[in-house]
Simulated assay, not measured.
Amino acid sequence: MNLTDILQQAGGIESMAKELGVSPGVAQQGADALLPAILGGFQKQAQGSGIEGLGGLIAGLGGSGLLDSVLGSQPTPVGQGNEILGQIFGSKDVSRTVAGHAATQSGLDAGLLKKMLPMLAMLVAGYMAKQGGQTAGGGAPAGGLGGMLGNVLGGLVGGGSAPAAGGLGGLGQLIDRNGDGNPLDDILGMAGKLRG
Rank of each mutant, 00 (worst) to 15 (best):
E52S: 09
S95E: 04
R177I: 02
G181Q: 11
D32S: 14
L120Y: 04
S161L: 14
M116P: 11
G146E: 04
K18W: 08
V26H: 02
L7F: 05
A164H: 00
Q74Y: 03
V70K: 11
S73P: 04
G30V: 10
G166K: 09
A10I: 08
L54A: 13
L35Q: 15
G56C: 05
G126S: 12
V22D: 01
G170I: 06
E19S: 15
R195F: 01
G160H: 11
L34D: 08
A125N: 08
V152G: 07
G50P: 02
L57F: 08
G143N: 15
G55T: 05
G146D: 04
Q9L: 12
L113I: 03
G62H: 01
L3K: 13
K115V: 00
G139M: 05
L54M: 15
M122K: 02
G48E: 14
L153W: 06
G137D: 03
G147H: 09
G81I: 00
K92D: 07
G158L: 15
G86T: 10
I58V: 14
F42L: 10
Q29L: 14
I84E: 01
L171C: 06
L168G: 13
D5C: 06
A33S: 15
L66A: 12
Q87K: 15
A102S: 13
P24D: 03
G189Q: 06
Q9V: 10
S73L: 10
P141M: 03
V124G: 08
G133N: 06
F89P: 09
N178M: 07
N151L: 12
R96P: 00
T135K: 11
Q173L: 13
T4M: 13
S73T: 13
L194D: 02
I6M: 12
G60L: 00
I51K: 04
N82D: 09
N2L: 11
